[in-house]
């Protein structure tokens, strides 16, 4: 059955429009997060390689 009559104004909460500046901020923040994760991984790798120095101390 089709409803007829006055049109019901429906309020729809639309998401805020994305501006160029917000896009740039999002991209920068994402890049920073990814760089941070890679830096954490590199730091772990370097800390692991420290075993090489300990071995050189032990074997002498």
């Amino acid at each position: 059955m089709r409803l007829t009559g006055p049109r019901v104004q429906e309020r729809v909460s639309l998401p805020p429009a994305r501006t160029r500046s917000s896009l740039a901020a999002d991209v920068v923040c994402t890049a920073v997060a990814c760089a941070g994760s890679v830096l954490v991984a590199l730091a772990l790798l370097d800390a692991s390689a420290y075993g090489r120095f300990l071995i050189s101390l032990l074997v002498r």
Partner: peptide
């Protein structure tokens, strides 16, 4: 903020 914290954590760890 979460992303920047992650980036700062990476810098500090490095």
């Amino acid at each position: 903020v979460g992303c920047l914290v992650l980036g700062a954590a990476g810098l500090i760890a490095y």
